[in-house]
Design a protein around this nucleic acid. Sequence first.
DNA 1: TATTTTTGCAAGTGATCACTCACTATTAAA
DNA 2: TTTAATAGTGAGTGATCACTTGCAAAAATA
Lengths: 173, 173
Amino acid sequence: MTEKQEKIINSALTLFAKEGYTATSTSKVAKHAGVSEGLIFRHFKNKEGLLQAILQQGEARIKELFIPILTSEDPKEVIRLTLEMPFSVTESEFEFWKLQFKLKWELEYNNPEKMQPLQQALMIAFQKLGYEIPELEAEFIIVFLEGISTAIIKDNMSDKLKFKEFLIQKYKL
Amino acid sequence: MTEKQEKIINSALTLFAKEGYTATSTSKVAKHAGVSEGLIFRHFKNKEGLLQAILQQGEARIKELFIPILTSEDPKEVIRLTLEMPFSVTESEFEFWKLQFKLKWELEYNNPEKMQPLQQALMIAFQKLGYEIPELEAEFIIVFLEGISTAIIKDNMSDKLKFKEFLIQKYKL
DNA sequence: TATTTTTGCAAGTGATCACTCACTATTAAA
DNA sequence: TTTAATAGTGAGTGATCACTTGCAAAAATA
């Protein structure tokens, strides 16, 4: 991975997350990265290839965030870590996180199965805690996660800290 | 409103909701509607004007769906009707509903204040029911609504009916 | 050191973009 | 029935789109 190659990926991530994939031209990416437009196609074949490179690189980073949740034996910790996740996305991951949501609507990128290991872990956690319908409790959290994430990315939440504490209290974690 | 004008609006709504606003060209809209491309600009000035016409027309229809919730005196009914809303979007409103979500991410259309009357009504409902922190309970529902809507539009919900019943039971409605 | 491979750029390519313009057909008012 | 306004068309416009090509510089390999 050359220095210019990384600059292209970073610029593209920034612009795709801000303006959207379709609305961002390859010439804009090149200008932002300070390289010739042709170089994008030399390295990534086409615009779609550039996007895939960004996604591949980002998903590798995201996967690590799931490890502590999926390996925990304590059911309350599983639920707490899951609910806290959207509140603890770092500045550096924020752009990639936002891009994921944009792509879900802009292109028809639909892979809910990405969430399934988490949903399974949540179900087991609720089972351990004696909830009546653990599958639906787990699905409830997954569905709710989408709402929290949107509210945080769009900065529509009145008080993040208060809301987080409210959730923890609601599930007695 | 001429017949061709309506055809343009309907075609644009369909295509914008399916392919996205930026990715849908005015020539595509014209072809789908069976009119000349120039007519779009005669009637709506530009592409943005066409979008605004769609939004204006749709929002008028949507507002009516909120009336029964906002006028109800029964707190349990307020909450139940709110939670049931995403499950009862009719076939004919589905496209417009989907478009709303697409635009929220594609363009930076961000007007959370549209939800505020509903959030206020929910807060009062939770207050009447004696909940400890009614403001956060109301915000919780609003945030959750985003998640349910996404799951339904993207068809990611295992069993809509079961999930709806689960929600009603959860709030003892 | 000589040769090959990779990296990079500038200047293109045709296609498509949103939009305009000159003009005709239809409708409505005078 | 004449006049004026509106509805509608089709062939354009320059700008921008994703992408290609030819060639030079740099780096890696021999």
